[in-house]
Design a protein around this nucleic acid. Structure first.
Lengths: 111, 111
DNA sequence: TCGATATTTAAATAATTATCTAAATATATA
DNA sequence: TATATATTTAGATAATTATTTAAATATCGA
């Protein structure tokens, strides 16, 4: 999930996602929307793929990219949980002067 | 909005948001949840504040941080639009061999 | 098989971000 | 007012990320 958030932090990559929401596109078609070189776009596509946000499939000379909404919906879930728009999840609210329940051992632990 | 996405790209900052969802907390209380130094946490809080995700208010010696869900809901909206969970928005789908409608002039344009 | 097209990978560099220690600022309290 | 506590700011460095040019790989079509 961290990879997904990191992938979404870049405006170029978010725009690529929007382009792929409309329809599947080849790497070259995607690159045509930006001022960046093709290798740069390829790098961004690689980041999106690594995050599980897009899939690619070679079709002859071309490589066609498509959106994978599965992970995107996981991230959506993170927001829904947070904004309370989804469910009323909030296990045992902490009281005013309570000590912290635990100290995180790692930045990576639990999102 | 780009600032928000960038702010959310860091796991420490996401955890801070979760902590503030439970209740308002002082900078020191927040720092106690992490292994990082206080200045580092202060830096993360500053990033969250700059993104409009949290607010701060001095209370005597302390500075109390609280969640501002407004921007968070904007970001949520971005996902809803994308996953189609919200509305059926998708103005004029492009046909298979169509040329790009326009070339983006800047990476920052439109998310 | 050869040349053209599509795309990625490699290597280098530039830019950004995270983190620390030390110092500065603000408030409270003795 | 002096001292302690809470927090931020400054300055330095390390780590990560973005970008480019050049080279490599894969496929197509003559």
């Amino acid at each position: 999930m961290n990879e997904s958030f990191k992938a979404l932090a870049d405006p170029t990559r978010r725009q690529i996602i929007r382009l792929l929401r409309e329809k599947d596109r080849t790497a070259g078609e995607i690159a045509d929307y930006f001022q960046m070189t093709k290798p740069s776009i390829s790098h961004h596509l690689s980041a999106l793929k690594h995050a599980g946000l897009v899939q690619d499939e070679r079709k002859g000379q071309f490589i066609v990219y498509s959106l994978d909404t599965t992970v995107l919906e996981e991230v959506l879930g993170w927001f829904l949980e947070l904004t309370g728009a989804g469910k009323n999840s909030e296990a045992e609210p902490t009281a005013a002067g309570d000590p912290p329940r635990r100290k995180l051992q790692s930045d990576k632990e639990e999102l």
